[in-house]
């Protein structure tokens, strides 16, 4: 179809910009998901910590700053070659000084398009996310990964070209009341999210065996816009490094930096640390 070729050529132009030439590539993005899925019958367990020096807003007026962290245990499974399921929980002290369970999140992704060739592919997938969160809503920022209950759905397209991987996501987000806490009027019901991600394989130059560590560098951009009388926008950049060990363990270290926004938030920058362990063919 003509539009597949158009999208493919757009990614190709971007790749020329990034001057990718040789070997293989990476698309295990740190902040977003690629269109590719994990293998069928594989299981992955990961723990992510999103930490920062944050600011706790209080309506009583006694605001304070302290070390905030959100710990996200996650379990992922490749139901088949096209469908991935991820379930995660959120434990955080973003809204009170002690860490408590904030809620859960389920993410399903369906890969519906694959154009593969040697050392390259173009893939598209559709995804949906549902989040159930149980703390008060303090900010206009909308985030289904720990802050707001709601639903999200969208598409992701990923182009792999040798050492370079490029990916774009477009998602629609609908927020609801949090458990036991109404969504205040200043928080938009509907918003959109969009991301553009690039990943590059730095090491190894030549693959010899599964024990060689892989080092990947990522840069991801995210925009969030909500539409209501309280229009909100947040634009952020996420640089990250990733280490793959023994071809089944993964360590991510990322930084989040806000380029521009018109909302107040816990913190305008933060860090991410993640450990992931994969078991291939876990289910027979």
């Amino acid at each position: 179809m003509w539009w597949k070729n158009k999208i493919s050529s757009a990614f190709l132009l971007l790749s020329i910009f990034f001057k990718s030439e040789f070997a293989k590539s990476q698309e295990l993005f740190v902040m977003t998901e690629p269109a590719s899925n994990m293998p069928a019958k594989a299981v992955a367990m990961r723990v992510t910590n999103k930490f920062m020096n944050g600011h706790l807003h209080s309506y009583a007026g006694n605001d304070e700053s302290y070390f905030m962290q959100r710990i996200v245990p996650e379990f992922a499974i490749g139901l088949n070659k096209k469908i991935n399921l991820r379930v995660s929980g959120f434990l955080a002290n973003y809204y009170q000084k002690s860490i408590k369970l904030e809620g859960f999140n389920m993410y399903v992704k369906y890969r519906f398009l694959s154009h593969d060739d040697l050392h390259r592919h173009f893939r598209m997938a559709a995804f949906s996310r549902i989040s159930v969160i149980d703390h008060a809503i303090n900010f206009r920022e909308i985030n289904l990964e720990g802050d707001n209950s709601g639903l999200s759905t969208g598409f992701v397209a990923t182009q792999l070209l040798h050492k370079l991987a490029l990916s774009a996501t477009l998602g629609y987000v609908h927020t609801t009341n949090n458990i036991g806490n109404y969504r205040p009027d200043f928080v938009a019901k509907n918003s959109i999210n969009y991301t553009l991600s690039a990943g590059y394989l730095l090491l190894p130059f030549h693959y010899k065996n599964y024990n060689q560590p892989n080092l990947n560098v990522y840069c991801e951009l995210q925009g969030r816009n909500s539409f209501s009388e309280y229009e909100a926008h947040i634009y952020e950049v996420f640089p990250a490094l990733q280490l793959i060990l023994k071809s089944y363990m993964r360590i991510d270290l990322g930084y989040r930096y806000q380029i521009k926004s018109n909302v107040s938030r816990n913190a305008y920058s933060g860090y991410l640390l993640r450990f992931e362990y994969n078991i291939f063919n876990a289910l027979h």
């Binding site: 590539s25 994990m38 293998p39 594989a42 592919h121 792999l160 793959i244 071809s247 994969n278």
Partner: peptide, 14 residues
């Protein structure tokens, strides 16, 4: 075809 990394190779081999 379409492989990206040693993780993908290991998954395919398994």
């Amino acid at each position: 075809s379409g492989l990206t990394c040693s993780m993908c190779n290991l998954a395919t081999q398994k």
